[in-house]
Simulated scan of single mutants.
Amino acid sequence: MSIYDFEVTTISGRSQTLEPYRGKVLLIVNTATKCGFAPQFDGLEKLHQSYRDKGLAVLGFPCSQFMNQELAANSDIAEACRINHGVTFPLFSKIDVNGSSAHPLFKYLASEAPGALGTKTIKWNFTKFLVDRNGNVVKRFAPADAPEKMEGHIKKLLG
């Protein structure tokens, strides 16, 4: 299965696949608006603004599995991201990233780019996955890795 075949739901409730992002470098992130790492939204938005015209797509997937650090309603999540961090990159419906209810996309990402010691679970909010233009998962970044730390990797993939 290709990464572009995964079905996702936009933050506004529309079902789609990742096919519209084929040929782009993707930075896929599980987010949480009440997390201590939430200031990373600003850095993610900066990457989006700097590189979207060169082929980068930042995709945010809210998750509340880690200490319930996400708002309940998708509309509230979208509003908080827009008002507090100026987010304009695509956000998707709240999902689980671990366990039996984990979204298939994140099961795939975690298996393609395991974490420390080969773990396939997502350890916390703001785990980031970098995907090349061909749909290959090339790198996992830890929650504490600031978006700025990824810029060199992104530029390399953008060519």
Results as ranks from 00 to 15, higher is better:
residue 4 Y to K: 14
residue 5 D to V: 10
residue 5 D to N: 15
residue 10 T to E: 08
residue 13 G to P: 03
residue 15 S to F: 07
residue 16 Q to N: 07
residue 16 Q to P: 07
residue 16 Q to A: 05
residue 19 E to I: 06
residue 20 P to G: 05
residue 24 K to F: 02
residue 24 K to C: 00
residue 25 V to L: 04
residue 25 V to M: 02
residue 26 L to D: 08
residue 27 L to G: 01
residue 28 I to R: 11
residue 30 N to W: 05
residue 30 N to V: 06
residue 31 T to W: 07
residue 32 A to H: 03
residue 33 T to P: 02
residue 33 T to L: 09
residue 33 T to S: 13
residue 35 C to T: 13
residue 36 G to N: 09
residue 37 F to A: 04
residue 39 P to T: 13
residue 41 F to H: 12
residue 41 F to Q: 10
residue 42 D to C: 01
residue 45 E to Y: 01
residue 45 E to I: 08
residue 47 L to A: 04
residue 48 H to P: 02
residue 49 Q to L: 03
residue 51 Y to E: 02
residue 54 K to M: 12
residue 55 G to W: 02
residue 57 A to W: 05
residue 64 S to V: 03
residue 64 S to D: 15
residue 66 F to L: 03
residue 66 F to G: 07
residue 67 M to Q: 15
residue 69 Q to C: 00
residue 70 E to S: 06
residue 70 E to F: 03
residue 73 A to M: 05
residue 74 N to Y: 01
residue 74 N to M: 03
residue 75 S to A: 03
residue 77 I to R: 06
residue 80 A to Q: 13
residue 81 C to P: 05
residue 83 I to V: 15
residue 85 H to G: 02
residue 86 G to F: 01
residue 88 T to R: 11
residue 88 T to D: 04
residue 88 T to I: 01
residue 89 F to R: 08
residue 90 P to Y: 06
residue 93 S to I: 12
residue 96 D to F: 09
residue 97 V to Q: 02
residue 97 V to W: 05
residue 99 G to V: 03
residue 99 G to W: 01
residue 100 S to W: 00
residue 101 S to V: 04
residue 101 S to A: 04
residue 101 S to W: 00
residue 108 Y to L: 11
residue 108 Y to N: 07
residue 108 Y to M: 13
residue 108 Y to R: 13
residue 109 L to I: 14
residue 109 L to A: 04
residue 110 A to H: 03
residue 111 S to F: 01
residue 112 E to T: 09
residue 112 E to F: 10
residue 114 P to M: 00
residue 115 G to M: 01
residue 116 A to I: 08
residue 117 L to N: 00
residue 119 T to C: 00
residue 119 T to E: 00
residue 121 T to K: 04
residue 123 K to M: 11
residue 124 W to Q: 10
residue 124 W to F: 13
residue 125 N to V: 09
residue 128 K to A: 12
residue 129 F to K: 10
residue 131 V to S: 10
residue 131 V to K: 11
residue 135 G to V: 11
residue 135 G to E: 12
residue 136 N to W: 07
residue 136 N to T: 14
residue 138 V to M: 14
residue 139 K to H: 11
residue 141 F to C: 08
residue 141 F to K: 14
residue 141 F to I: 09
residue 145 D to N: 14
residue 147 P to Y: 11
residue 151 E to S: 05
residue 152 G to D: 15
residue 154 I to S: 03
residue 154 I to F: 02
residue 157 L to G: 04
residue 158 L to F: 09
residue 158 L to E: 07
residue 159 G to E: 14
